[in-house]
Design a protein around this nucleic acid. Structure first.
Length: 643
RNA sequence: GCCGGUGUAGCUCAGCUGGCAGAGCGAAUCCUUCGUAAGGAUUAGGUCGAGGGUUCAAAUCCCUCCACCGGCUCCA
């Protein structure tokens, strides 16, 4: 038997016989490591320690100290769930039960569960963990396994597909429970310190909506009870940040039942949106975009040559209908209209780039089950822009746009993750054009020296995309800004410019959005800031709290001094404590408390939403500070930062 | 769209196996005029998501629809 070369994390190489298992290699490195081996990571995939190595590979040994140990433990927790389930519901059929980033799930069928049932299953899981059953691996021939799963078509499906080429398949056993499984698993059920079932939902077999619907039970597990508690608390905090909840509390927006997926911005929400709009307008001016406006309602034929019509109607995503023997539709994108504005007159190579921006409201018939607050809606307004450029301008244009998005994200205290999305099944245009456009985007990303992941097949139909994803305050990733390069629509609409040579040439289109859509961006910002908006965005920037009703008149004078700031006066006859509490609940950046003392001295007492305070403040000093704070778009109120 | 769940006052929620629709907060009015995270009293608020059915009687049981929530599948 010939040898293979295993590359270890430190770069060293080890020559071992072909067919050596992960654990064999670990023993080769050292007996201690061999003994501690839980699993391995072979070329990036977490696998069982009994996995035989057939080719040269990169190998990481997973022990209890490894990050991957938690994945292994959760995989075992999924088995413990399945075992508990089968004890209580012998008729339940198992399908798959993998680990996930946050825990695990198990897809099951043949049993109806509700959340109360989960508690009983959880109790049984605790018994199984307490019993500390050893977890043993064994193998059967594929035929034997197939016979064993006579009454489980899902396991048979796995044996016929995933395991098609294998002679032997592995099983894991703990007490009376056994499951077809590739592993890896921990040594015994007692290693799972703490497990919890989180919710119950559903999924399709193999994620295919034409296949069976399965019951999916989500859970998580940790090495210790404390870590589980910490996780549950984090989860609770994320729930507290839910933009739908905060949106109601702060009266920002609503999505009434009569307009599903279409947002009503209330005055408070509209104040934020207006600030965002003005902000983007200023950016567009800097970037050389000229604002245009195009209608939502058009004849459907507008979108036929560009490919939009086929693309959107194929998925039932376009709102279109017959009226007076003509087909009309609501625009699902703004690009076609902008291209028509471009085509309206002749352009010289000297005029390019020509850039159009629009706060374009588009409508897409998203599936009802997809709608979610501001984050997934049917009607939304993109801060859209299209630049028509010469091929020699591609690099510069894309780089400028990427830099501008980067600067914007900094203003919102967001981290960035770049994704390059490439040609998908719905693409229009030739492979050559796509390859060229994709390469241009790569060049731009490389010239900026940024790291990016490639997501194959994820692009829009007309061209490859750089998704500039934002990472929010609690680590979640959102697609917001995008830059897309399009050689196809110019071709399809026969867009041209006249070159130096007096010949017609084809421009390239750059589609870009800085914030994406105002709806989604606001949803993300609400959760990112937990409703505590930076001063420049806060619907109410300052609230004046008169100590008693006698001070309301002074409060009015103070407000007048604050000019164009958004200032409220709390004029309910509440105690000061109550007024303060309400202002905190409303997340107002600054409170100015004014009573007899302040009125006499002509000062204010400042308190901020971080509970800092200072008395005897001269109003001019406060105003000068907040003017700077607003202008610089500082994220936190910092007048009292040194208190 | 599919699977599961939910829908009761402006908000948060109680209301069990059918028998007069409730609380707290908020609102209005009155008292209190208060100094750094909830002062007191009174009053008003509901076609129990909509429609149909069962029943002497439906918020409660059944059916259909709508919306929302958790997922799946799809996207800014």
């Amino acid at each position: 038997m010939s040898d293979i070369v295993v590359t270890l994390p430190d770069g060293s190489e080890l020559s071992v016989p072909e067919g050596s298992t992960v654990q064999d290699v670990a023993y080769e490195i050292g007996p201690g490591l061999g003994k501690d081996t839980v699993a391995g990571v072979v070329d990036g995939d977490l696998v069982d320690k009994a996995t035989e190595l057939r080719d040269d590979a990169r190998l990481v040994i997973v022990t209890e100290q490894s990050d991957e140990y938690l994945d292994v433990l959760r995989h075992s927790a999924a088995h413990v769930f399945a075992q508990a389930l089968q004890r209580l519901y012998p008729e339940a059929k198992l399908t798959i039960g993998p680990w996930t980033d946050e825990g695990f799930y198990y897809d099951i069928t043949g049993v109806d569960l509700d959340s109360e049932d989960l508690e009983a299953i959880e109790a049984e899981m605790e018994e199984i963990i307490a019993a500390d059953y050893p977890i043993e691996r064994y193998t059967l021939s594929r035929e034997e396994a197939f016979d064993k799963y006579e009454d489980n078509p899902f396991k048979r499906d796995i044996l016929e597909n995933e395991a098609a080429g294998e002679e032997e398949v592995s099983f894991y056993r703990q007490a009376e429970f056994e499951d077809l499984c590739k592993g890896p698993h921990v040594e015994s059920t007692g290693e799972i310190g703490a497990a919890k079932l989180l919710n119950i939902s559903s999924a399709y077999w193999r994620g295919d909506e034409d296949k069976e619907t399965l019951t999916r039970v989500y859970g998580t597990a940790f090495e210790s009870e404390e870590e589980l508690e910490e996780y549950l608390q984090r989860r609770e905090e994320a729930k507290e940040r839910d933009h739908r909840k905060i949106g109601r509390e702060l009266d920002l927006f609503s999505v009434p039942a009569h307009s599903p997926g279409c947002v009503h911005f209330h005055p408070n929400g509209m104040r934020i949106r207006r600030e965002l709009e003005e902000y983007v307008r200023a950016k567009n001016d800097e970037l050389g975009y000229e604002e245009v406006w195009t209608p939502e309602l058009n004849k459907a034929e507008l979108w036929k040559p560009t490919g939009h019509y086929d693309n959107f109607t194929a998925q039932g995503e376009m709102f279109n209908w017959e009226q007076d023997d003509t087909e009309y539709g609501l625009k699902p994108m703004n690009c076609a209209n902008h291209a028509y504005i471009y085509a309206h007159e002749q352009h010289s190579y000297r005029d390019l780039p020509i850039r159009f921006s629009e706060f374009g409201t588009v409508y897409r018939n998203e599936q009802s089950g997809e709608l979610s607050g501001l984050l997934r809606v049917r009607g939304f307004t993109q801060d859209d822009g299209h630049a028509f450029i010469r091929p020699d301008q591609i690099q510069q244009e894309v780089v400028n746009t990427l830099r501008s998005i980067r600067d914007i994200y900094r203003n919102f205290d967001l981290d960035i993750e770049y994704k390059l999305e490439t040609k998908g099944d719905n693409a229009v245009g030739s492979d050559e054009i796509w390859a060229q456009a994709t390469q241009s985007l790569k060049d731009a990303l490389d010239s900026e020296g940024v790291e990016y992941d490639v997501e194959e097949g994820e692009a829009a139909f007309y061209g490859p995309k750089v998704a500039v994803n934002a990472i929010d305050a609690i680590g979640r990733e959102w697609t917001i800004g995008t830059v897309q390069l399009d050689f196809n629509i110019p071709e399809r609409l026969d867009l041209t410019y006249v070159g130096e040579d007096n010949e017609e040439h084809r421009p390239v289109m750059v589609h870009r959005a800085l914030l994406g859509s105002f709806e989604r961006f606001m949803g993300v910002m609400i959760e990112h800031f937990n409703g505590k908006f930076p001063l420049w965005l806060a619907p109410e920037q300052v609230r004046i709290l008169p100590v008693s009703d006698d001070n309301i008149e002074y409060a009015e004078r103070v407000r007048a001094e604050l000019g164009d700031f958004r200032v409220g006066i709390e004029d309910r006859s509440w105690t000061v404590g109550r007024k303060i509490q309400q202002a905190h609940e409303d997340r107002v950046p600054y409170m100015l408390i004014v009573g007899g003392n302040e009125e006499e001295a002509g000062t204010v007492s400042v308190r901020d939403r971080e509970e800092r305070e200072r008395q005897d403040v001269r109003l001019e000093a406060f105003r000068a500070h907040i003017e700077a704070e607003r202008a610089e778009k500082r994220v936190e109120p910092d007048f009292l930062a040194d208190e």
